[in-house]
Design a protein around this nucleic acid. Sequence first.
DNA 1: AATCGTTCCTGATAGC
DNA 2: TGCTATCAGGAACGAT
Length: 306
Amino acid sequence: MPELPEVETIRRQLDKELKGYAISAVQTDFTKSFRPSFETVDRVIVGGVIKAVDRQAKLLILRLLLPVKESPRQVYLIFHLKLTGQLLVRKPKDPADKYVRSVFTLVAPPGKLRESNRSKIPDLNSSDPRSNGLGSMELRFADARKFGYVKLITDKKEMGDLLKSYGPEPFKDLKLKNFTQILKSSARPIKTILLDQEKISGIGNIYANDALWLAGLDPRRASHKVTKSQAGRLYKAILVVLKRGLKYGGASDQWYVQAHGEKGKYQEHFLVYGKNGEKCQRCGAEIKRIVVGGRGTFYCPACQSL
DNA sequence: AATCGTTCCTGATAGC
DNA sequence: TGCTATCAGGAACGAT
């Protein structure tokens, strides 16, 4: 399940590779995933040039510049991968990927094309009619479970409001002081708070489990009863596990892959996530799986105290 | 305002 | 082996 480290890994790759490309076509066999509608997205974004790829929480945000003659306009194309979404950068002739629901065809503008293909062999044999024969690419949106979505926002204020609905970013504005305040604001289980995107951006089930284990905190503990020193430990633990997730290129537990289909490696370094029945690497007790807030939760009953 | 239940969807898995 | 029923899960949404 793509969380902050997974989405950020993809963001860095997309930002590097897609910048400067223009969208020349959009295809889908699942229009339901488009908001407000496939027709609108298709009509508006074709011709748009990708200026940058941003991230907020688990959202990937393509900043597009529409080449309207009088006044070029910026719009935002947002992807949420939810549980099984993948964004793959491919060549049109590359082998098919499983569960592809939508394909965005990308073409390099002349300037970009000369620059990036100077030393490459031109692909003159492409049979794809949309291809310009040079530097054409595809951004494939695959999603086995179909929970993911593509959302177009054309209004700057609407974009601002959307971003404001998310909690602070762990590596930007989440400081110990506001983290402590956030914990005090609710009586729900601490793990539920960590997963709440309105409270804190980017944490999902994997990193919530591992951070709570690292901090030695029971995931069921009432958030507002977490002590000051525990909050301090949890704050550090969150940053540590997210950083490790990033370092290993994300966790390819089931579906997650990076932008070129490679797997991440954080799954080889899980602390408790998915380790039901195994021994706690800190105290040797048996890791248990329980359900907290409707989510599978892994923890060590011996060293994660209430 | 905070919280909770329901819903979306289908691959993987357990049970027979 | 092959079939069927059940489960998992982020977060939007409506209800309380």
